[in-house]
Computed example of a mutant assay.
Amino acid sequence: MKIAIIDDEQQAREDLQQALQLCGIKNVIQAEVQMFTSGENFLQVFKPEDFQLIFLDICMEGINGIKTALAIRQQAERLPIIFLTSSADYALEGYQVFPAGYLLKPINRAVPQLKDILHHCLPDLMANIINVQRHGRMLQINIERIAYIDVQGGRRVGGRRGSVIHLQTGETMAVDTSYTEAATALEQRDFVECYNRLMVNLAAVETLMADSFVLKNGEQLPISRRLYRETAHEYMEYLLRK
């Protein structure tokens, strides 16, 4: 898990990081935490697939927390945002971005509240994780980071072939987990097999063509004639749900 803390007060950032360590939740304690001093600094580097949880101060110099959250929502509709505030008066305004919760400063007095919010968020966060084997070790990958999976370049491990996970950033990751195992884990998650041993994340698709998908990162994936009608139907159903 990767967590962002965005607050222009150093003490508030440090208090929250310490509170996360005291919350007693393994996935949170082991998470990678990145600190940002302003909404501008965060938005300059923000990619939806890079973070699973965001803590965001409402009152900051420059772009305030509400405007920062609105910019985040343009790229990530479901990414959990937890607002930090010194006054409950800002709560109503913040609800337009559907936050996962509010923490009232000082944070070191809000650890029980933090635990409640995290317990509420974590089932949804963990539901977006796929477990794969890589070099004999278990690896968790956020499903929203995946553009597609296939077997091109996959290694043979223990007499069977692994698969390749292609991230939306363009990076590739060869894993020991077979294509069949990975596809089974993803088939109920808005992924569809559009070609033989090639399964695409419909959320990564920019355009449906006559014989292919064009992805948001510019890649083009073929759609087989045999699977085209079913694939197009699944994509249209996905668009209607969204």
Rank of each mutant, 00 (worst) to 15 (best):
D190S: 13
G101R: 02
E61L: 07
M60G: 03
I72R: 02
E77D: 13
I5K: 04
D7Q: 08
A88G: 01
Y235R: 07
Q21C: 10
I25F: 01
I141E: 08
Y235P: 01
I66E: 00
I6C: 04
A174W: 01
L208K: 09
Y228F: 15
E237V: 12
R13I: 09
R241W: 07
A12V: 03
N201S: 14
F98N: 14
V132E: 03
N108M: 13
E230P: 00
G39D: 02
I66F: 04
I141F: 07
I165T: 03
E181V: 13
L79N: 02
I130C: 10
I129V: 15
Q74T: 12
L43G: 02
L202F: 05
R134M: 13
K105A: 02
L92N: 06
E234G: 01
P123I: 13
F46L: 10
L239D: 03
E234C: 14
D150L: 08
Y228Q: 05
T177L: 07
T207S: 13
A232E: 12
L22T: 09
F98C: 13
H233D: 11
V97Q: 06
I117M: 07
D8K: 08
D190I: 05
A69E: 00
E193W: 03
Q188K: 15
V164F: 04
Q17N: 13
Y90V: 05
E237H: 12
R134D: 06
A4D: 04
I107G: 02
I29L: 06
C23W: 01
I29P: 00
E49D: 09
V214N: 04
G101C: 05
Q11D: 12
R13P: 00
N201V: 09
Q74K: 15
Q140P: 00
G65V: 05
R73K: 12
F191E: 04
L104N: 07
R155W: 08
V33N: 06
G65A: 10
D15Y: 04
T169A: 12
M173R: 10
K47F: 05
S38R: 06
L202Y: 03
C121I: 15
C59N: 12
T169S: 15
M1G: 05
I81G: 00
I25Q: 02
H120Q: 15
E171M: 13
F51M: 11
Y235M: 10
I3E: 00
I129N: 06
A31S: 13
V157C: 08
E219Q: 15
F51E: 01
T37L: 05
P106R: 09
I3G: 00
